[in-house]
């Protein structure tokens, strides 16, 4: 079963083509490595997959589907409603003084107050004129187009991609520094949490039920990456190696089907990267597909089932570690022409 499929993905920044027409598939349960010299477009590829930069052309299919909020009828109705509400609000606001004068100030405060009369008087102020129609039209246009604009920018977004089961770590660690290790994992668990704002504010039972369960799971995950002892330490004050592993635990917390690791072994010594390889294998045993970017060839060759090689944004090779080792194009890309 294909977990991830890239279909002729191209990503351009202005004139720079970071990823050029790349296609490949990742099958369920595999460990796939993306390698390539610095600046080959590996991280850009990850950012495209996770929805940070939508591809300029081409498609990213996760579980055979493009992750995108479609413009459903419901959306269109929403924009219309927002537009109409803004139009009414702007018109009322601009005529607020006159309406109030006619409806409230003109009537003596008696009890019972003549509400019906007041309403009629208010309506009489709102006759079509330059002061009601123009603001209405402008307000309606701004409201509707603003809502459309908001939808357009949120159409393809990392949180949607995460919610369909893709989790990632970052090349330069991006933990929530002021949260404890456990809280970081709990944030990673977000897609699986359902308690409401008021549950937490008023300490209702759903909050406690979920909190207890989530904390237990978080501690389990922390133990899985050997960070059980530092659960209450703030992430920013953990040593570098711990932070790397905490990022993995945080990514695992969303119970992803596909895990993207961006240079997990960067800055690690041989012992640490050996234990990292062990950890990645353990993750695979949980049934999670792993796609990783890595420079450490020992790690790449040691654990990958397949390797994709990028060079200047193009895919120049794909295959098993043994095939890649022998591939002349790869050797040329890494070592230059003379060496090949």
């Amino acid at each position: 079963m294909t977990v991830l499929e890239l279909d002729q993905v191209t990503l351009r920044f202005g004139g720079l083509t970071a990823v050029n027409n790349v296609s490949f598939r990742v099958e369920k349960g595999d460990i796939v490595a993306v390698i390539g010299p610095n600046g080959a477009g590996k991280t850009s590829l990850f950012n495209t997959i996770t929805g940070i930069y939508p591809p300029t052309t081409g498609r990213v299919l996760i579980n055979h589907a493009v992750v995108e909020q479609p413009a459903t009828l419901q959306n269109k109705i929403q924009w219309t409603i927002i537009g109409v509400v803004t139009a009414i609000a702007v018109t009322l606001a601009l005529n607020a003084n006159a309406i109030w004068d006619a409806a409230i100030n003109a009537h003596a405060i008696t009890s019972p107050f003549p509400w019906g009369q007041a309403f009629n008087d208010a309506c009489r102020v709102l006759t079509p004129s330059a002061w009601t129609i123009i603001p209405g039209l402008v307000g309606g246009f701004v409201g509707a187009s603003g809502a459309w604009n908001a939808w357009r920018t949120a159409r393809c977004s990392p949180d949607l991609v995460t919610r369909v089961g893709v989790a990632r770590t970052f090349q330069n660690i991006r933990l929530f520094r002021e949260l404890s290790a456990r809280d970081n994992v709990l944030v990673g668990m977000e897609p699986k949490l359902h308690s409401r704002a008021w549950d937490g504010a008023f300490r209702l039972p759903p909050h406690f039920r979920e909190q207890t369960e989530a904390c237990a799971k978080a501690d389990e995950l922390l133990a899985f990456v050997n960070l059980g002892e530092v659960a209450d330490v703030s992430a920013g004050s953990l040593p570098y190696g711990h932070q790397r592993r905490l990022e993995i635990a945080r990514a695992l917390a969303s119970q992803p089907s596909l895990l993207l690791l961006d240079e997990p072994a960067a800055g690690m010594n041989p012992t640490e990267s050996a234990s990292l390889m062990l950890l990645i294998r353990k993750i695979r045993e949980l049934g999670i597909t792993v796609l990783l970017i890595e420079h450490d060839m020992k790690v790449v060759m040691g654990i990958s089932d397949r390797i994709v090689v990028l060079h200047y944004g193009n895919k120049i090779a794909e295959g098993t570690p043994a095939e890649i080792r022998e591939n002349p194009a790869v050797i040329e890309a890494y070592l230059g022409k003379e060496a090949g």
Partner: peptide, 30 residues
């Protein structure tokens, strides 16, 4: 106090510390 100690508080602080990472964790910053 309760809100800060709940899921909502974690979301807020996550968005404050690193909005992009929070988005990548499935939080909608908006």
């Amino acid at each position: 106090h309760n809100m800060r100690k709940s899921r909502l508080g974690r979301q807020w602080i996550a968005v404050r510390d690193d909005e992009l990472a929070a988005r990548s964790m499935g939080i909608s910053p908006a």
